[in-house]
């Protein structure tokens, strides 16, 4: 596949540049803080989509990768004076490897059993970390101010980390796109449709599932490292927030599972919606309710999400938007 000849590739590049440039040009910190959340959501949704949308395995605990990445990074940077770059890469690699090993086991489970196990894993890891003294137990890890020095002080470091998060966002979309257009992706979609039939057709389902589970852990872990480095601290409840995990599912469903555009648009929309609800007085307490109603409405009336609806209205869109 000639990547540079594909319009969708350039669309990903354009969106990434937009996120990178919009706040940077005017040094707009408020916009940056909005977009960082948007970018994180897109990263989580795009990677979760590899499991839910491509493979048909509902990972309720995908946030465990984000949290582990955050913890590993802050532990390396804060406790062992590593630089940020090697720390996030190692955190991503270790999390991905853990996911691979874990996947060999839990991916033998299907349907509701798998979903339950993923919740169990996230909760087990959260409770473990909350009791794990080297990582600060329930108090978590605080980064000393000196950690930002190597990057030219906190002000400059926050901008750098923002751009890195946007880069990870672009990479997440690119990975989602490349997987979808690959033989590997074709095998995943076959598993989603009918795992037993896919195996009879020659798809090595156990290996494919484990690989995609592991892949879906890498970039969220890196993003977790960057995000919590930016925050300067990490605690178990924020790192392994099961709610965010489920919100990521809402984003994927909102945009349309199985499509790259859908996951990204769903995430960005959800972030806007959430932001809107939080700022409207009287509604801020109800954002969970509204998200719940929204999810229920999508499931009942538009299971294909936004992209499903768009594709039905304009079938030719299928050729442009992945």
């Amino acid at each position: 596949m000639k990547l540079f000849a594909r319009p969708f590739f350039w669309l990903i590049v354009a969106v990434t540049l937009l996120y990178a440039l919009l706040p940077t040009l005017g040094q707009n910190v408020t916009l940056r803080e909005t977009l960082v959340l948007s970018a994180i959501y897109i990263i989580l949704a795009a990677n979760l989509n590899l499991m839910i949308g491509y493979t048909g395995y509902v990972n309720f605990g995908s946030i465990v990768f984000f949290g582990l990445g955050g913890y590993l990074t802050l532990w390396l940077v804060g406790g062992h004076h590593w630089g940020l770059y090697p720390a996030v890469l190692l955190a991503g690699a270790v999390t991905s490897l853990l996911a691979f090993l874990l996947g060999i086991g839990v991916l033998r489970l299907r349907g509701a059993y798998f979903a339950l196990a993923t919740i169990g894993i996230n909760e087990a890891v959260k409770d473990f970390v909350a009791n794990f003294d080297p990582w600060g137990g329930a108090e978590g890890i605080f980064l000393p101010f000196t950690a930002f020095k190597a990057m030219g002080g906190p002000g400059k470091a926050l901008w750098t980390v923002y751009l890195l998060i946007v880069l990870v966002m672009g990479l997440s979309l690119l990975v989602a796109y490349l997987v979808k257009r690959s033989k590997f992706g074709l095998g995943l979609f076959a598993i989603r449709e009918d795992e037993d039939a896919a195996m009879v057709l020659g798809v090595k389902a156990p290996l494919f599932k484990t690989l995609v589970y592991s892949l879906s852990a890498f970039l969220p872990a890196v993003a977790g490292g960057l995000y919590f480095f930016k925050n300067g601290s990490i605690i178990p409840d924020e790192a392994f927030n099961l709610h965010l995990s489920i919100e990521a599912i809402v984003m994927v469903m909102l945009g349309g599972q199985g499509t790259v555009t859908g996951a990204a648009v769903g995430a960005a929309l959800y972030e806007r919606l959430r932001g809107l609800l939080l700022t409207i007085p009287g509604l801020s307490n109800f954002h969970l309710v509204i998200a719940g109603v929204l999810l229920l409405l999508i499931i009942l009336f538009a299971p294909g999400g936004l992209m499903g609806w768009l594709y039905r209205a304009w079938p030719r869109l299928r050729r442009v938007l992945e």
């Binding site: 979609f189 039939a197 798809v203």
Partner: peptide, 14 residues
């Protein structure tokens, strides 16, 4: 056991 949400061609490509 067709792969329902995939096209006929995609089924055979698998």
């Amino acid at each position: 056991r067709p792969l329902n949400e995939m096209t006929v061609l995609e089924n055979v490509v698998v």
